[in-house]
Nucleic acid binder design. Structure first.
Lengths: 134, 134
DNA sequence: TATGATATGTTATATTATAACATGTAATAT
DNA sequence: ATATTACATGTTATAATATAACATATCATA
């Protein structure tokens, strides 16, 4: 089983480095464009690296934006469930990392006779900085 | 401003009819394939109808599946925020329609100094029928 | 050092979505 | 009733996102 501590390959590390230094989530082809100088030539190389990074919880996908973001949490176990605050003004994304969200969704699911496994939450609005400037 | 009560055009009605009779969410090209016999020939015709139907709250998009689903609620006001229970076994989708979700997300956002505007929630798991069969 | 599992490189292609522009239709203001 | 306006349509082309298939390479470990 893949662990967050396992050693990354060159391609994986290159993609992760880029994402970790990005202020906003990046799209796959934006990633490709940015790391072509490092020898990565095809979309598939990017997608494969992303797949692995997502699998081990180092990267998450923001579905509604087809974009990818590095996880800021150490030893992230969110290989499946994710919760984001997405600023509609500046595109910055914060990941919510709270057990109570999963608990809440489990309860909500129960009420609908549905067995919760995982979730994807994308909250849109205005971040701390942007809401001040209206 | 577009209201849920306004009259639909032929293309819009055709797409909506199909979605309303579908048990699972449908992808845009699946919609196209299904209604080609009704004179709709190009993807753009489908996407345009979907755009409008989404705008007036008759249809919602499930971002993580690139799929579309008819809203079962009368006079749906969810032109923006949506919450789904998605069965991983049978692909059936139920829409949660609860004020308390928005309230809860507003509170969670506040705690992160973020001004909530809208959300997209996709809960994966097992529906009533499928969880019985394991 | 053979083995098995995983990653890579590469080409091609599938899938999802939009641009651009000419034409058509339908409500309503004159 | 007709000019005007706004919106919807039809059509072709293309952009953006993502995967298939297959040959080769790398690396841990039996």
């Amino acid at each position: 089983m893949a662990l967050a501590t396992e050693k990354l390959t060159n391609n994986q590390q290159t993609v992760l480095d880029l994402l970790e230094h990005s202020k906003e989530p990046l799209k796959a082809y934006a990633i490709l464009f940015n790391i072509q100088k490092k020898g990565i030539k095809s979309p598939l190389q990017v997608y494969r690296a992303l797949d692995k990074l997502i699998e081990i919880g180092k990267v998450h996908k923001i579905e509604s934006k087809n974009s990818f973001i590095a996880c800021k949490h150490k030893n992230c176990d969110s290989t499946t469930s994710t919760s984001f605050l997405i600023c509609e003004t500046c595109d910055q994304v914060t990941e919510l990392k709270k057990k109570n969200l999963s608990l809440y969704f489990t309860k909500q699911s129960d009420q609908a006779d549905f067995k919760y496994t995982k979730h994807n939450l994308e909250i849109y609005g205005a971040c701390k900085d942007c809401k001040i400037k209206h």
